[in-house]
Design a protein around this nucleic acid. Sequence first.
DNA 1: CAATACGATATCCTATACGATTTCGTGCAG
DNA 2: CTGCACGAAATCGTATAGGATATCGTATTG
Lengths: 238, 238
Amino acid sequence: MRSPKPLAASQIAAEPHGGSQAIHRAAGLAEEVYEAIFARLMALKIPPGARITVDNLVRELAVSQTPIREALGRLEGEGLVVKTHLVGYSAAPQITRRRFEELYDLRLLLEPEMAGRAAATMTDVALAELTAAAGVMSRNGGTDERARYSQFARQDAVFHDQILEVAGNELIRETLVHQHTHFHIFRLMFHARVTEEALDEHAAILAAFAARDPAAAEQAMRVHVERSRDRLLPAFDL
Amino acid sequence: MRSPKPLAASQIAAEPHGGSQAIHRAAGLAEEVYEAIFARLMALKIPPGARITVDNLVRELAVSQTPIREALGRLEGEGLVVKTHLVGYSAAPQITRRRFEELYDLRLLLEPEMAGRAAATMTDVALAELTAAAGVMSRNGGTDERARYSQFARQDAVFHDQILEVAGNELIRETLVHQHTHFHIFRLMFHARVTEEALDEHAAILAAFAARDPAAAEQAMRVHVERSRDRLLPAFDL
DNA sequence: CAATACGATATCCTATACGATTTCGTGCAG
DNA sequence: CTGCACGAAATCGTATAGGATATCGTATTG
């Protein structure tokens, strides 16, 4: 968990260049390899549980084994890949239902409280940025379902992350961002449908911020997280 | 010359449970390198911010560069070491005061709630184990200060971890354990004095568990964490 | 037909060599 | 005496080779 983490959920649509190079030695080769693998995981190009061979990555990325191993080790430390001795690396398995519930339990313990604090310390400029982020979400009616969801996933992550930033606790913010990367993969697997409800709930949170009402913000966030959980829970019954 | 020289048992300096040579083939060399470096960090044999050269590790552990790089990458993913391009690895810097306060903020949001849940679901056997762990802490009056603190640090970690285990949320448990590794290094740096207060506070938590009183357990844990914070805060004024 | 044994392939794991870059010590000039 | 420049040492980054092990397909036998 590194400090300058600029919310990495932005690599979702990274698919265009299908080439096998374009990796230049700008700031460390291992860094780029890491991001390349990370993007593949986030985009489900490597589905959960799938094997990850270093030879394939050597061919695809046109770099030697060493930086690839280093990047894989780092991903292992973050829990996104697992390694079994004499077998190799593979993407982390799909999240279990129990884990899912534990994650929402954690979110419910932290995010409403953080939303309440954010409401107390909200500045006008921060509120404007937050409203802008939420606004982008609502005005994309014509695009197709796939792109629409991708758009929502990014903006939803930004929305929650900005609230945590205003709340002021970087450690909690990093913790939730880290968990979000795991969660994102799960959500993508089931093509969770984005309903208008989520947008309405975001609007309710914004209203509480605008009123500088910590209690209302806390309650609105709690309702939002709980409903988000309930919207996704049926995915486990498939 | 393919003799896999066993890692020197130097990493078990603080661990009295040295179980001789272990299963090399089962776990992999990188695993052992990881644990060796981890132990060095926990024991402050590598102080915060110090450089970590792979050549030194090659000589000390008698293994090649590759498994060392892999282990360092994993440690980087966990945030215990940092890497700067074309400079190398170094131990993570000392925790800042702000980070310290954020950590206790997080603990206060989670641990009292978890203690309350634990009190509700506490079994007799779990309570006995917990009491045993707390009991070990109090009966070591004759030893020297250094060993006494080392003993306390281990048992305190076990105490809190067992409570989280009873509470039932593995994700929260893992999160706090992970943060504890960072915190442990800080606490060790300042030879934080272990007062009898901490033991009394643990006893109060146990009493609430014995009475199966969630509200009392939550309150006792809150008091304990807050006082722990206040005991350590003066270290930043040095 | 099913189950097991065997062998070929793929992959991991380790070791070593070489180039690129930073860092640090030393000497010289101001 | 201090600051700067230059060069040597140290270290990282990369690449390649070879040994060890698991996996998978095929053939053989009950």
